[in-house]
Design a protein around this nucleic acid. Structure first.
Lengths: 195, 195, 195, 195
DNA sequence: TGCTAAGCGAGACGGTACGTCCAGTCTTTTG
DNA sequence: CAAAAGACTGGACGTACCGTCTCGCTTAGCA
């Protein structure tokens, strides 16, 4: 077993929470560029050393702050793949068509791609909706609503990738119509699979 | 007309070129995080003041350095939309499946979205391939090869967005098969338009 | 002979005058620390190259600007060495108990002591009053009013040095009483010379 | 009382000492003009921020470096005001007839006259010898060696001012004979007081 | 109850880069 | 051909954060 009681004062969860709250507030109010370790320390009242004890740099702290609060698409009672996918995409687009969306993209771009925290952030924030979509499609295929997809990963990227593409490039708006069209086209690809 | 001869010493194109070359080298050798104005000045022998006279910050300098050197998809003599699109996507994926790809994504994420330079960078580096794809599709529709697309913007985002999605999230590799599948699915959507 | 007609556009005395005027204004309004070549160029409309053609650096330009305008003690019709010396010292103290006094001290301290311009500045601005005092004393000795001084240079330094000492150290004010006491003590030293 | 324990890491005296030593070395080897904050940081290994935490600019740093190391005139066992004063003046002249003398004058001229550090510098470096001289004279008057001086401040300025005058203007050398003559004249003024 | 280990805030430390200012030089066009 | 205009390299400025390191003070489990 590995539950040897550690000696000494235990790490303070209060400090972690205050730090995350301050980081989140700075991200929303001032943006990723202002999210410095020093600023979080000053705003939260947590010492810099404590921050470095919990996160290796400001970027990881940002990711930790952003992980909480991304609303997971609740299943919903939609009937039919198209309706369910459309609902999920609209929720996603709404969640990312905000300040937070761009902050998330910037954070991910700046993060060390090898880091453990980056992996967790990707899975929890970027790819969780993609996995939800995968489940919808697999379920629909299991029910015989659509044929089993040939390359589901590419398909998923074609549904979820455009959202981040528009956040990054900003050439077109993120809105409900866009979400619907993405879902539509996904179903088109699925059903047009050669029999 | 507004072609009054400017007085004083004209800006040195040599300085600009040296700066861009140094910036490009740093980007490729050390990454976007090391592209500081100071480093470019030191490496290029160009004064910091001259750099600030030409670009407002290191990020714009990075964009300027990245604008040159992105290979535009040459038209190619492919016959048929699917072949042409596949060829273009494979070239794009090859171009971005490198260090440069991630650097470009990071640069764009870090850039001020309102800046003039950012707009130019987006158009020249991120969206130029998208416009090439648009031309391919419009031409195919004009020839009657496919029906005229209902929402070509969403369709284009579904083709080009996934490339940047994979660069950013890194959950799946960028390779030729992926490029082909994207092109395939795009044609599927186009041809499946309601009869 | 050396009067070969110079070819080309003759040096502009107007440029020199504008430069000196601007330098003087900056010295009085903003102080010696703000007297940069760039500031003089900007304020006077004279090109930097022209300034460097006429003065080797900002400090020399400052000295040139300060040379003009120091009021030479007019002989005055005072009778008697003590009265004449007192009058002269009071005029001097009045002239240096201003912004200009401190600027002059700073300029001299910052100047290259070997430079030609520094020598001229010293002679015209710092030492001219000392020479006037020397003349007063020599004249008085010639008239038999006082014995011929043993070491007139030390005596002169004891009269004029304290003025700059107080400017530099600022431990005591420069005023008319001080000027009078200096003159008194000088006469005391002169008359107390052992016969 | 006001002895609240300071929180946080205490300032490092080692850093201060290293900085002062480096500043002093630069002053002596390269002169006041080369005493930049950057140079002190580079030479001492102390961070720039630490320097700015302790001194507001390079000039104050220079003054701090010059304060230490000015040899205070040791009382000496001279008998008689004239001998004592001569000895003190000769020591002073010897101390200032070096590179240091001019550096000190330049530093004082360049300093902000209002600053706390400037005041300390003046008192410790410029005026300390003057106060020593004041004590000699007061003591001699107390012993009945000379009459009590009418205006001791002016007298002191006439003794010590000429030293800085010669440093600044450089029209005459600083040497032992000059020191002796200053002391002589001072005693002459003192003893010639109205009977 | 006291000991001891570890986390805590605060804040100074050596650094790196920032963006600005100015020095002094060089290269244009204008008078 | 000199003056003016102004861009150039170079270097110091003073600031902001970085990530590390003492400090003195909790806050716990262990003795």
């Amino acid at each position: 077993m590995n539950d040897v009681k550690p000696r000494g004062r235990p790490p303070s969860t209060a400090a972690r929470e205050k730090a995350l709250a301050a980081a989140h507030a700075i991200l929303m109010e001032e943006g990723f560029g202002r999210l410095t370790v020093e600023a979080v320390a000053a705003r939260s009242g947590v010492g810099k050393a404590t921050l470095y004890r919990n996160w290796t740099n400001a970027c990881e702290l940002a990711m930790a702050a952003l992980i909480d609060g991304v609303p997971l698409a609740q299943p919903g009672g939609e009937t039919g793949l198209k309706a369910a996918l459309t609902a999920q995409m609209q929720a996603l687009v709404q969640a990312f068509a905000t300040t937070r969306g761009r902050q998330i993209a910037m954070t991910l771009a700046a993060a060390d791609p090898e880091s453990e925290m980056t992996r967790a952030f990707r899975n929890r924030v970027i790819l969780s909706s993609r996995e939800a979509g995968r489940n919808l499609i697999i379920e629909a295929a299991r029910c015989g609503e659509v044929p089993p997809p040939a390359d589901i990963d590419t398909l998923l990227d074609m549904v979820y990738g455009p959202v981040f593409y528009r956040i990054l490039a900003g050439h077109q708006p993120l809105n409900a119509v866009f979400a619907e069209r993405l879902a539509d086209n996904a179903v088109t690809i699925l059903t047009a699979a050669r029999p």
